[in-house]
Design a protein around this nucleic acid. Sequence first.
DNA 1: CACAATTATATTGTGCACAATGTAATTGTT
DNA 2: AACAATTACATTGTGCACAATATAATTGTG
Lengths: 146, 146
Amino acid sequence: MNEQLHIENQLCFRLYKLNKSITKLYAPLLKEAGLTYPQYLVMLVLWQDEKAKTIKDIGAILELDSGTLSPLLKRMEKLDLIKRTRSTLDERSVAIELTAHGKEIKNKAKFIPAKLFMLTGLTKVELTQLQQDLDELLSNTNQHLK
Amino acid sequence: MNEQLHIENQLCFRLYKLNKSITKLYAPLLKEAGLTYPQYLVMLVLWQDEKAKTIKDIGAILELDSGTLSPLLKRMEKLDLIKRTRSTLDERSVAIELTAHGKEIKNKAKFIPAKLFMLTGLTKVELTQLQQDLDELLSNTNQHLK
DNA sequence: CACAATTATATTGTGCACAATGTAATTGTT
DNA sequence: AACAATTACATTGTGCACAATATAATTGTG
């Protein structure tokens, strides 16, 4: 049989499973903070510097379009995590900022990265190396998109 | 600011983006074969040895439960890729086998892995090493799940 | 200035992914 | 053999992710 088509030889399949596996590791930790994983990513962006960002800004960082972000941010507004405001300067754009509650959650979330690092079982050196490898690969693959 | 909470320092975020990026690389290739990415994974399992497999078998390999597989396989049956048959030996289980059309598609698909390998820009040695690194990490993370 | 092109976001529709729950068949236990 | 437990799968409901399309605001161009 064609060894190249063997599922266990596919890089994509490892990434697919690993992505799911790690998301499941986050789930119980995020649940305490009342967040889903994509919501956590948005919060990370907003916690960065606690200044309002447009949907476009967030989309550029997370590589998500309005088809994903628009309903996601609406749900987050309902959860009192963020506030959405039409910009007065440019009526097309929507500014996203943290609510008081959204800012508070950061205190619960700040221990998550260390907890997750432990669960990976990697050393700091291994983690850094892997991050570099993945960055390089991501740079290659993104080069062929759009 | 807490550097640990910086989004660009998260391993999960790289995996998240990489997974999406690679899936998008597959999209145009799979479209020619009339498959989505998860459908391609199922086909890889069935192409392996062209014998019928239960939904449970497929789920064990892909790490997916019936909530995902049940509707996915129904769609695949509608597309004439597979046939679903209640087992006579054990009426609980459903046997999945390839249709003639499902077998044919393998000829279109067999060039996909090589095409994708090119798009990654990795050398064979780098790919092998990365696969090993990801396997190790997957083994660690899965250890903490269920 | 008129208006074509672009931009920022929203909406619709489809397909996963998964938690929770339901159901019928099978197996284990007494 | 009776029946409790388990197993295999299906269903329901929620939340992404994305392609395609729509809409209104802004910008660019003659």
